[in-house]
């Protein structure tokens, strides 16, 4: 063992991490080397001195603060469970959208007809502007309904179509927006979630949308959707969005490629 080797193993020696074999070599060198003995003695005395520092007690404020924080989170979770979004959506749809497939077909056909009327309306100039605007509003409402109904569907291809339908809606209602955000947050299919990211990107001027995007970034597990979220949040250029990205890159579960992608994006915005 050289002097350098001995020095290198001092931290292990102090932590009691040397094997009996290594300990033998360690003591062997010390017996022959005055300067290493001194080196160890000094380092070891510092190590021991540090051990004199007692653990300090935090104030009782820390504990009470923690438990109130925990209670707050428990209340929030309980409220979510009591009032799940899908049930509210279902109730809303029941009042609007017929249950029977045959009626749904008819409704869709009606939609097409409305489209045709609008098309003709533009060509042959409608009687009054008011009438035309009314028609347009109705078409928007129809688009919303179709989107909502599809978003609530059982098959992932339906839900994907629903997300894509939202691109025909210029000004989404709160319900449609909420449904989209819910899709992003909890749809089991990553392609659907991915499409939801794109769809929500069109409405990212609304603060609530940014909140949902940042929230789902912390929960999203699919690297593909994570990257879509990162790109969107960077494009949004909002303080909250950048903060969420900073938290995100700290998360242990993030795969290195995605973390690198986020860091690259963030460095571009600084």
């Amino acid at each position: 063992m050289t002097c350098k080797d001995l020095q290198d193993s001092i931290p292990d020696y102090l932590a009691g991490a040397l094997s009996s074999d290594e300990l033998g070599h360690f003591h062997g060198h010390l017996a022959e080397c005055e300067s290493c003995r001194m080196e160890l003695e000094q380092t070891q005395s510092m190590w021991r001195t540090l051990g004199e520092l007692p653990d300090e007690e935090p104030s009782p404020r820390l504990r009470s603060h923690f438990y109130s924080l925990l209670e707050e989170e428990k209340r929030r979770v309980a409220k979510e469970l009591r009032d799940p979004w899908p049930r509210r959506l279902e109730a809303w749809l029941n009042s609007w959208w017929p249950r029977r497939p045959a009626v749904q077909m008819a409704m869709t056909a009606a939609l097409l007809i409305v489209g045709v009327i609008v098309g003709r309306g533009i060509q042959s100039a409608p009687e009054t502007d008011v009438e035309f605007q009314q028609l347009q509003t109705e078409v928007q409402q129809m688009h919303e309904m179709v989107s909502l109904s599809l978003l609530n569907g059982n098959s992932s291809s339906d839900r994907l179509r629903g997300v894509n339908w939202t691109s025909r809606v210029d000004q989404p209602s709160a319900d449609l927006l909420e449904s989209l955000m819910n899709t992003l947050d909890s749809d089991p299919n990553e392609n659907v979630r991915m499409a939801a990211v794109d769809a929500l990107g069109r409405f990212s001027d609304q603060p609530v949308v940014v909140d949902v995007l940042t929230g789902s970034l912390s929960r999203e597990t699919s690297p593909m959707v994570q990257i879509a979220l990162i790109d969107l949040l960077i494009a949004v250029q909002e303080k909250k969005a950048l903060e969420a990205l900073r938290d995100f890159v700290e998360m242990q579960s993030v795969v290195p490629e995605v973390r690198a992608h986020a860091e690259k994006g963030m460095s571009g915005t600084l």
Partner: peptide, 11 residues
Amino acid sequence: KARVFHALNDL
């Protein structure tokens, strides 16, 4: 380990 060693020396 190197940091532990240097930290003790610095201290």
